[in-house]
Structures are given as C-alpha cells and as structure tokens.
Write a protein that binds this DNA or RNA. Sequence first.
DNA 1: AAAATAATTCAATTTTCATTTACTTAACCG
DNA 2: CGGTTAAGTAAATGAAAATTGAATTATTTT
Lengths: 220, 220
Amino acid sequence: MRKSLSSATPVRTRDPERTKGQILEAALSEFASNGFDGAKVHQIAQRAGCNARLIYHYFESKERLYTAALSRIYSEIRAREDELHLDTLPPEHAIKRLTETTFDFFESNTAFLAITRSENLLGGRFIAQVPEIQKMSTPFLDKISDVLTRGHAEGAFREGLDPLQLYVSIVALSAHHINASHTLSATFGCDVSGKEWRQHRRRHVVEMIRSAVTAVESTL
Amino acid sequence: MRKSLSSATPVRTRDPERTKGQILEAALSEFASNGFDGAKVHQIAQRAGCNARLIYHYFESKERLYTAALSRIYSEIRAREDELHLDTLPPEHAIKRLTETTFDFFESNTAFLAITRSENLLGGRFIAQVPEIQKMSTPFLDKISDVLTRGHAEGAFREGLDPLQLYVSIVALSAHHINASHTLSATFGCDVSGKEWRQHRRRHVVEMIRSAVTAVESTL
DNA sequence: AAAATAATTCAATTTTCATTTACTTAACCG
DNA sequence: CGGTTAAGTAAATGAAAATTGAATTATTTT
C-alpha cells in the first residue's frame, strides 16, 4: 500500500541532542513571533531542519513543546537576576544598574516578552507548570528591598518604597514600548523600534526611576 | 438534493443593524479573550445569537471582522481623550487627572488592552487599515505639551519634559500589570488582578508620575 | 398585491493543521 | 558482525474551523 522509501531520501545524521536543541530553538522563535495558536508545528519542524514527526518523538505534543519553550525563557531571566549583584553597589548605582540591565535585557532578548505575551493571552494556562517560576520571586525582591533600605538609611532614598511596585514599574517602563511597538508606532506616527527612539526612552526610564526613589527636600 | 427547510425552523426577527451590532460586540469579546487565531467564527456567531453565515454576509471575512473590532476599540479611546479637557485644569491637576483616568480606563475597558495585545502579536498586520488611528496622536500630544509648558512656566514642573515619553510611561505603568497579569502573578506569588493590589498600584503610579514631572530644588 | 430585495438558515465544501501509522535505517552493544 | 534500539522519514488520518452554496421567507418597493 505504502510506497517503499527509496534510497534517494536525503539522510539526516543522527544526533538526538542536536535535534532536540534545534527543535526548541525553532519553537522559541515561532511561538515568539506567532503565539501559541499562530505557531504551526510543521513550520517549527522546517525551521529546525527536521521532520515534524520528531517533535512528537521528543516533545510529545505542541503543548508540551510550548511549555518547554516557556521554561527555557524563564531560566534565562532567572540567570540574569542572579548576575546582578545589587548588594555590592551603592544604592543609587544599584537601582540604576537594575533599571538599565532590565531595559537592555528586554531589548536584546526579544523572545522573553513575546512568549510572555502569548502566555498571558492564553490566560496563563501553562505558566504554573514551569518549575523555574516557583523559586524566582522572593529572593530577588528581598535583594531590591535591601537596596531600598540601605538607600533610605543613607538619606538618599525616600521612605516606604515598595520593592514589588518599583520592580513592576521598571519592567513596565522597559517593556511596554516593545510589547506594543506596532500599535504605538501607528498611533503616534513614529517608529518606537528605531534605535534613536529607544536610546531616548532608555534615558527617560532611568531618570524616571531615579526620581521615583530619590528623597525630596522636606516639604513641610 | 438539499432538504427543503421546514417551517419548524425558529425564525429570527430581521434587523440588520441589531445583528451587525451584536456580531461586532461578540467579536470584540472573543478576539479580546482569545486573540485573532484563538477566536472561532462559530463561537462569535453563537455569542451573537445568530448564524455564522451572517458574519460573512455582513463582514466578508474573519479578518475584516477583526479590523472592524479594532476600529471600534480605537474610537472609544479617542472619545475618552477628547473628554479630558486638560487645558482647563492647573498643571498638577491635569497630569494627575490624565494619569488616573488612563489607569482607570484600562481597568474598566479590558477589551482595549486585550485587542491591542493581539494586534501586536500579529505584528501590526491590520492596524494601518484603521481610519481612527490616523488622526489621533498629534492633537492629544499637543495638549499634554501645553500642560507641561504651563507647569514649567509656573515653576512647578521641571524643564525639558518630553510629552510622548511621559504619556508612553503613563500608559506603560497603567497597562503592564493588566497585560501581564498571569505571568506577574505567577512570578511574584500574588494576585495582581485583585482589588487591593490594584488600588495600591494606582497610588504608586500616580505618585511616580507626579515625582517625574515635579521640579526639584536646584541641585547645584 | 405582485415583484424585488436582502436577511436568514442549514448543510455542504474546502482548508488547515495537529497528530499517527507504518516503515526505514543508522548507530550502538554484545 | 548480527541484532536491537531508537532516530528518522513520508504520507495518511481525522478533527476542527473557515468559508460558501443554495434555498427560504420577512420586509420593502412599486
């Protein structure tokens, strides 16, 4: 019934690790550019340079592949947080550095925001299954909290700053123009993805965070 | 060949305007909750309480329906901007009001951010076709610019503030926790959609924008 | 009131796409 | 080496979903 596979078939050298890796890479960029529903399994296979069947061989389903991509992305951001070493810097520098590296991370790691967006569109269907997510938050927020406390002790920072609110703000200010680049560009008739615009924005964001934490002369 | 339609069929009262409206409403919420690829035409029809064929009758295709939904959403935000009347308020109040109403708008108009997110995921494929988009930006930015100029003239605001950067920041701070509610909640182990969290955030955002525009004692 | 128009329905048709079946063969293991 | 395992391939399957065909009838027009 089925045509015998002729010897003319181009043969792929066997290498499970490489194949798995290529699939994950391809999945990452496909899910990033098209979201979960928009991404096509065959397209991912093609980009990985392998047969679509292999995706099922190694990842079982589109959903699992997506979850794997999600995990990968969160490992990266976690690694970045570990490298920050906020505790070794004077408070003002620590906050500046946190802001700048966050801003730069989103700019260079385009997949993070894109996949995150897709996951939020899905209503967070898969995020809970990502092991990396569990152990992230608290230690990192504690580090920020330490910086804020130090800064206030020195009289440089204002009192009662909330580390979570502050960090969410840093992320928001650094991410929104990337997340919404197309609609923003269309709305304001400028190219917010352009190099100059982004440099301009970077300065604005850094200054904004600085002024949010800096103590003001007593306004009594 | 085809079975004659029996008289037992429940008959829908004919009313093109109502039907069109219901379809658009349904489309809005379907596209908002599932994005373009995730939304299903039959589901939209069902929610609109009509036959799926009517969607093609009135809107020609899924893509056109999506574009119509996009237009609708942008009309709303445009209308809101017109109602702000920033010019009648003292500068500090104007900025505060702009911040608060932006924040509140996103919270109550959940469809706007959701559809915007979908459109950005699609790489801005349709936004250019939306007529409402063309005439938005500049007049509104001019109004903000006026407020900033007035504020600086009074000595209340700092010099050289960029209206576009400021407005993008207001939007970013007001939108990010909604756009990314699921991943943020998972990451930080708290419910950023909860009422208290949002109220807390609102205060934080307002204060942040205030401190960004307020003039500081000369740091010479 | 007859004819024309267009709103509406049901059931195809067609497309797209995730997933599977059935097979082939390279690489490893004794 | 011979045999087993698992990596890989091509093509089919089947379900979901977009789109269309063709008939029906409410409403409007003349």
